[in-house]
């Protein structure tokens, strides 16, 4: 099958394939057929996913299909809006057309969260140091994405900003390196350390506030077939002016929180249970609280050194 990096294809071929819905994105364990029609999401995709392998052959079998479309015919012309359509009934909120990159990223997240059952999925960021992974559990306002982006600067591999994807047989985490989603104040923080060139334009006044995306590095894409064994789970909490602090928590409680964050654990059933229990063997869980990115990095370094040889 013909599959090259997106940036190796002629621009017009990519645009044509995206418009006609024959482009397949081959990222980590998933192949996704993508159909985009507005200029903004097409530019966003070509920029943020430039290093990703894609195919423009319509005979490719895909795990998911995602189409961005107007919510109805009327909205094609008047106060133009867009919704992600992952191919099943879902009450997605239509967004103004200028926010189509957000609609696209949300749509891809929905596709994975609601249609993948081969792997147990937990809502968390994952970065890896070689073959050892760190899970950064999602808590609203916890600073998961900022910490994920900051760890990329310390040469951790980005596995995913959104999903811990557990291989149920190997008890390892799969990489799915998509753009890291940044909100509000964290946008400038990440621009500061990663460089403006690595962060997308900001979408203002979205339902989630201001949103921008930090691009995965080519090295994240090159190593994406390399799964990693999780060693440590962190529950981060960013509090302005807080003293840096870490506290070990009961692994059983951490497990319950991971299960509660999963869109598909219950659906998979017994294999998800045994896979998760195997994954947890020998792991440690900590809550970390901090008031600055430097402090969060120092805490991670210290815990990592203590637990991962």
């Amino acid at each position: 099958m013909n599959r090259r990096a997106l940036s190796d294809y002629p621009r017009s071929d990519v645009i044509h394939a995206l418009r006609s819905g024959t482009l397949a994105l081959d990222l980590g364990p998933f192949l996704t057929r993508i159909k985009l029609s507005d200029r903004r999401s097409i530019d966003f995709f070509r920029d943020m996913y430039a290093a990703c392998p894609v195919s423009i052959d319509k005979a490719v079998l895909c795990d998911f299909s995602l189409c961005l479309r107007p919510p109805n015919k009327f909205r094609k012309y008047f106060r133009r809006q867009i919704v992600p359509d992952p191919g099943f009934q879902f009450p997605a909120v239509p967004l103004p057309l200028e926010m189509s990159p957000l609609a696209f990223e949300m749509g891809l997240n929905l596709s994975v969260a609601l249609q993948c059952f081969r792997f147990a999925i937990f809502h968390a960021g994952v970065v890896a140091d070689g073959d050892n992974a760190l899970i950064i559990a999602a808590k609203s306002g916890g600073g998961k994405s900022t910490l994920t982006a900051a760890l990329m600067e310390e040469d951790w591999r980005l596995l995913s900003d959104e999903f811990a994807i557990l291989d149920l047989d190997a008890a390892t985490l799969k990489a799915y390196p998509r753009p890291v989603s940044l909100k509000n104040a964290s946008i400038d923080v990440v621009r500061g350390f990663a460089g403006s060139g690595q962060v997308s334009d900001t979408l203002h006044d979205t339902p989630k506030g201001a949103i921008a995306y930090r691009r995965p590095r080519p090295s994240d894409i090159e190593t994406m077939q390399r799964a990693a064994k999780p060693r440590l789970i962190l529950f981060p909490r960013f509090t302005d002016g807080a003293q840096a602090e870490s506290r070990e928590i009961d692994l059983a409680d951490a497990a319950m929180q991971l299960i509660a964050s999963s869109p598909n654990y219950q659906v998979i059933g017994e294999r998800a249970f045994s896979g998760l229990m195997t994954m947890l063997e020998g792991m440690k869980a900590y809550e970390i609280e901090y008031g600055s990115t430097e402090d969060s990095l120092a805490l991670v370094r210290e815990l990592w050194k203590a637990h991962v040889p």
Partner: peptide, 18 residues
């Protein structure tokens, strides 16, 4: 078992209980 807790997976309901 994890520490003092027991995880019970029910094959009947497919649910995990702590």
């Amino acid at each position: 078992e994890i520490g003092d807790s027991t995880f019970a997976f029910s094959r009947v309901s497919g649910t995990t209980h702590m």
